[in-house]
Simulated assay, not measured.
Amino acid sequence: MSSIGEIVSSTILWASLSTGVVLMPGTLIAYLLARYNFWGKNIVSTLTSLPLVLPPTAVGFLLLQTFADDGLLGKLGLDVLLTWKAVVIACGVMSFPLVIRTARVSFESVNPRLEQMARTLGYSSWQTFFTVTLPLASRGLLASAVLGFTRAMGEFGATVILAGNIPGRTQTLSSAIYSAQQAGNEEQANGLLLIALAVGFLAVFLAEKLSTPKQEVTRR
């Protein structure tokens, strides 16, 4: 079994990569859902939220069928199964809905009138998005990244099915806790558990702080 340091560093790296992969598309989808009405909007919202309600093992099984040799993407010759890439994909898929939902709330909290004022001043849609909407929603978007990262770090079910639990290769913090407990290594299991609790607490605390609007100081 790998050392605690190796397990934690690998998990942080994979969680960071998965968060980076889903952050941009998740933010764009969240903006579309928050600001536009279009045919199939409810379908898009439902599909992107499915991993939140499906058992992680079910998501992992769907990914396994997709990336297997006879699967839709497996036929393209992608070498994903039982590799670190499978960890990143599984973690990204499971954290994707959380990123979208948090980012969507952030965009919905931005006053549309401010965007309309920018448009009347000659700003294009993209200029308005980058100069007005994005800065005003930045705290909430950062919170979505933090929550997505934390969800990726804690992912287990989908990751185990798609990437396995191979020490030094695809073993994550959550799967290492499971392996240590099954092997009777209570010391390592407790050490990894404390790290998971600390990371989870700090992430949720930071996300709460970022999600709380700044109080404006009024002068009398």
Rank of each mutant, 00 (worst) to 15 (best):
Y178S: 13
L78C: 05
A34G: 11
Q65L: 13
K214R: 12
C91W: 00
S109D: 13
V44D: 03
G157D: 14
F107Q: 01
A68S: 14
T172H: 02
F61C: 01
E108M: 09
S124T: 15
S3K: 03
G77Q: 10
S179G: 09
L72N: 04
D69K: 10
V22C: 01
V110M: 02
R35N: 04
K41Q: 05
L73T: 03
V88M: 05
V88C: 04
L193K: 02
P167Y: 06
P213E: 14
T218L: 03
V110R: 04
P25K: 01
F67P: 07
N111K: 04
A34I: 05
I166V: 14
Q171K: 03
S211C: 07
T48L: 06
Y31E: 04
Y36E: 11
Q116R: 14
S125M: 05
V146P: 03
G5T: 11
I100V: 13
L52D: 08
E186L: 14
R35W: 01
L33Y: 01
F205N: 15
T212A: 15
S179M: 15
F61W: 03
A183P: 04
S125A: 12
V80C: 10
V199A: 07
V80D: 13
T66S: 15
A143D: 09
A158Y: 10
G168Y: 12
G71K: 00
I161P: 13
G92Y: 07
K41T: 01
F38N: 08
V132C: 04
D70Q: 13
N165K: 14
A189G: 15
G154I: 03
R219T: 11
T120S: 14
F129R: 03
A143F: 02
P25Q: 02
T133D: 02
Q215T: 12
Y36N: 06
L134R: 04
E187K: 11
F205D: 13
L23T: 05
P112W: 14
L147K: 04
A34Q: 04
G184M: 05
T57V: 11
A152L: 01
K75Y: 00
L52C: 00
M153P: 08
S174T: 14
I100S: 05
S174F: 02
N165M: 14
V132Q: 11
D70A: 09
V59N: 11
V217S: 08
I7G: 10
L141F: 03
N190Y: 14
E186Y: 11
T48F: 13
W14H: 08
F96S: 10
T212K: 14
L28D: 10
L50G: 04
S16G: 15
L121W: 06
L206W: 00
S10V: 00
T66E: 04
I195P: 12
G71D: 02
P51K: 15
A86K: 11
T131C: 13
N42Q: 11
I43C: 07
L47N: 02
L136T: 02
A152V: 01
V22F: 00
L210Q: 01
S9K: 13
M153E: 13
T131S: 12
